[in-house]
């Protein structure tokens, strides 16, 4: 009397438990991101065949790493909120406003400002404040995060364009760009920065109370609250922290291009979300971490880079990302936990 579907599922589970029992399976399960590493391998294999090995050339690998740095930082930011089981769509707005602020406060050709290195704490403060507002809207006004952050994104993007008067602001301070485009032992410095940030977040997630509690909230907010987790405080802190990291990414964007404009925030959310999903951070919350964000970004950037090398129409990229995003979520989301899918 069993339906075809349930039988198929049973077979799948049986196969899965067989695989798990083998040595390969044990190895697979001992590494938290092994599935993602295999995906990366497949991407690499396909493109290295497709490009006659050009894809795996060391210079291209470094290009991919360099390109993945800023998306990686953004992904590291947004995945924190997703671990909570919430959503943050304010990425583009916050990046826009911090990018424009950095442009206007560093030595530039529009204003007389020059705050020098102070810009780092300043952008983090601006981003952090915006993130804090996100957190407050979600916890204190009890608004669903995906709509409140969407509203925040529009609001901040508008403000960014207003204060930049809609034009781009060339920088006159070359120090930042120098750091960004430099290399250390042949590896792009900006990538090393991203990895360092990933490391800090990894330690935060695994070695501190904040990290443990963040996963508890993502697992089940009500139970976490019962156990004594200060849910509101932690959610606000994580939204704030996420905002601070957006701020850093905004600054890096400005530094890399040596100019600033509100539109630098455009089209960043989509790849970051794709990277989160591909990396295996579950949108239902509580599963996945910094490692997943790092590998997820590398997969997405490698995929896009491969398409470019294979000279596929560049506008295909967002279609590919869209398909990858939907399929990755389809595979990772815990439908029992979400209950009703809206």
């Amino acid at each position: 009397m069993k339906t075809k579907n349930s039988r198929r599922l049973e077979n799948l589970f049986a196969l899965r438990s067989k695989v798990s029992a083998s040595i390969v399976g044990k190895l697979y399960h001992s590494i938290p991101i092994s599935g993602q590493i295999i995906s990366l391998g497949i991407v690499a294999l396909i493109f290295s065949v497709g490009t006659n090995g050009q894809f795996l050339h060391i210079s291209n690998i470094m290009t991919v790493l360099g390109l993945s740095a800023i998306p990686m930082i953004l992904c590291l930011a947004v995945h924190q909120v997703i671990i909570l089981g919430a959503m943050d769509l304010s990425l583009e707005g916050i990046v826009a406003i911090t990018a424009v602020s950095a442009g206007l406060l560093l030595k530039n050709s529009v204003t007389a400002n020059d705050v020098g290195l102070w810009i780092i704490p300043i952008v983090m403060l601006i981003g952090g404040l915006a993130g804090l507002v996100n957190g407050l809207l979600n916890t204190k006004l009890r608004m669903p995060s995906f709509i409140s952050t969407l509203g925040m994104s529009w609001t901040l993007f508008g403000v960014a364009i207003m204060i930049s008067k809609g034009s781009s602001i060339p920088l006159r301070d070359l120090r930042f760009q120098k750091v960004i485009i430099s290399e250390f032992l042949g590896i792009p410095t900006v990538f090393i920065l991203a990895i360092l940030l990933g490391l800090v977040l990894y330690i935060m997630q695994n070695k501190t109370k904040l990290g443990k509690h963040m996963y508890a909230i993502g697992g089940n907010e009500i139970l976490a609250k019962q156990a004594g987790v200060k849910v509101d405080r932690i959610k606000i802190s994580i939204f704030g922290l996420t905002g601070m990291i957006y701020g850093l990414a905004g600054l890096l964007l400005v530094a890399r291009l040596n100019s600033s404009a509100a539109r630098y925030g455009n089209n960043l959310l989509f790849p970051a979300m794709t990277a989160v999903a591909v990396g295996g951070v579950s949108l239902s919350g509580g599963v996945g971490g910094a490692l997943n964000a790092v590998i997820g970004t590398i997969i997405v950037v490698a995929l896009n880079n491969g398409l470019v090398l294979m000279q596929i129409n560049p506008y295909m990229q967002s279609a590919v990302n869209g398909i990858v995003l939907i399929s990755a979520v389809a595979l990772t989301i815990d439908r029992n936990k979400i209950g009703i899918i809206k």
Binding site: Y215, A216, A227
Partner: peptide, 15 residues
């Protein structure tokens, strides 16, 4: 009231 996404240790000493 056990959180399924945490380990036994993490659940035992949560908070």
């Amino acid at each position: 009231s056990i959180l399924p996404n945490l380990t036994v240790t993490e659940n035992l000493f949560l908070c």
